[in-house]
């Protein structure tokens, strides 16, 4: 999906005309494309991430895409900052907003209030019924913007605007495993239980982070994500299969 379709109207500032190269010490460079959570800015980040992974530059050790910047951890005794920036400039010129995801995931999600601990509360704040909330969430098309906070916690752009609600003033208790959350205009699929300021509006039987499974992590930053509603019974059936090592989310390769 083109990034423009993720956005109804521009609510946030556009990407910078050219990226800012910000040092985070001598061995990390943050390539910043903008200062907001925005599909177009994130597409620039993901495009550069994909191009740099492809380029396999000696000395480039790790790439961490975030909403608005790509953090490049590098060894400055192997690649000079100036040479790295030269490569980055040429990659950025090769088209930033033309990001095309490599895969789309269909992630099963149960919105039953028995599992979706905060859906009633979130629906009340949003002024709708829990059914309306789950229908809107399940009809959304999302993109994995970044991981953060804890292993396997995947932050998704593309939440319908009608579901944007501020984060809680103080965090709720630990999330259930596989909680699907909303907060601050984004959605999130979590892995291991952690306290959070977001609202649990669903649960997936899929394990976003499972060490004993190969691969332990499923969704790449930049992949598209949609949710397949499942009922209570189906949730537990899929959860049992996932516990046996099966991947219950469906990955479709995109052309």
């Amino acid at each position: 999906m083109a990034p423009s379709r993720l956005r109804a109207a521009r609510m946030t500032p556009p990407p910078y005309e050219s990226p800012r190269y910000l040092d985070a010490g001598e061995a990390a460079l943050s390539v910043e494309f903008g200062d907001s959570v925005d599909p177009e800015i994130n597409a620039c980040v993901l495009t550069l991430d994909a191009a740099l992974r492809e380029a396999k530059l000696p000395g480039v050790e790790e790439l961490v895409p975030t909403y608005r910047s790509l953090m490049i951890h590098y060894e400055p005794l192997t690649i000079l900052r100036a040479d790295l920036v030269k490569v980055l400039n040429s990659l950025v010129l090769q088209g930033a907003s033309a990001f095309t995801p490599k895969a789309r995931w269909r992630v099963p999600c149960c919105y039953d209030p028995a599992l979706a601990e905060d859906i009633i509360e979130a629906a009340r704040i949003l002024g709708m019924s829990p059914d309306q909330l789950s229908a809107l969430h399940a009809n959304g098309c999302y993109r994995a913007y970044m991981y953060g906070f804890a292993p396997g916690w995947c932050y998704l752009g593309g939440l319908p605007e009608s579901l944007a609600l501020p984060r809680r003033a103080s965090p709720r208790g630990a999330t259930p495993p596989g909680a699907v959350l909303i907060g601050g205009g984004l959605s999130l699929i979590s892995a291991n239980p952690m306290p959070t300021g977001w609202y649990v509006i669903g649960r997936t039987p899929e394990r976003m982070f499972a060490l004993e499974r190969e691969p332990p992590l499923l969704i790449e930053p930049g992949d598209d994500v949609c949710f397949e509603p499942v009922d209570h019974e189906m949730f537990f059936a899929l959860e049992a299969r996932a516990a046996r090592g099966e991947i219950v989310a469906l990955r479709e390769a995109l052309p």
Partner: peptide
């Protein structure tokens, strides 16, 4: 508050 970005050892 900034929009999250990467963090290095020693930040």
């Amino acid at each position: 508050d900034i929009v999250s970005d990467g963090v290095a050892f020693g930040a």
